[in-house]
């Protein structure tokens, strides 16, 4: 129980990942698929941001105990008190990428509705075989 509570960020992230995968595979509405895709991406972002959380020299999660991470930060700044900025920077870019993909996919959804008159993936079947 204590392990789960101290790693609650990662537990939530894995639950979100599972929800996203479930929605992507089993839901038939195009919008629900896109929503599931966004949940899937959010779960990864959550893990990254939790990883960067090295607060007041006290390491909050067991994964961030990597001695290299600590040493690298200490060698660079001369102190251990900081939040690791690299995952945040990576995720900032990844969010932009996700926004691009969502916007592009939504524009495709408009086209799909024009061509097929439905948003059900079981009925969007121009390609077969």
């Amino acid at each position: 129980m204590k392990t789960i509570l101290s790693n609650i960020d990662y537990v939530v992230s894995v639950i979100l990942f599972t929800i996203g995968l479930y929605g992507l595979v089993f839901k038939h509405n195009v919008f629900k698929k896109l929503l599931a895709l966004n949940i899937l991406e959010t779960s990864v972002y959550l893990s990254y941001i939790a990883l960067g959380d090295v607060r007041l020299g006290k390491i909050t999660t067991s994964w961030a105990k990597s001695p290299y991470l600590k040493d690298a930060i200490a060698a660079w700044t001369g102190k251990e008190i900081m939040v690791n900025p690299i995952p945040t920077g990576l995720i900032l870019t990844a969010i932009v990428v996700c926004v691009c993909i969502t916007a592009f996919s939504l524009s495709l959804v408009v086209k799909l509705y024009q061509y097929f008159g439905t948003l059900d993936t079981r009925k969007i079947t121009a390609l077969k075989g």
């Binding site: 992507l24 195009v30 698929k33 896109l34 895709l37 993909i101 592009f104 996919s105 495709l108 959804v109 086209k111 799909l112 061509y115 097929f116 969007i124 079947t125 121009a126 390609l127």
Partner: peptide, 12 residues
């Protein structure tokens, strides 16, 4: 029709 459906599948 075809390219839109293909692109949506491919993107997701």
């Amino acid at each position: 029709k075809e390219s839109t459906e293909a692109a949506f599948k491919y993107a997701v």
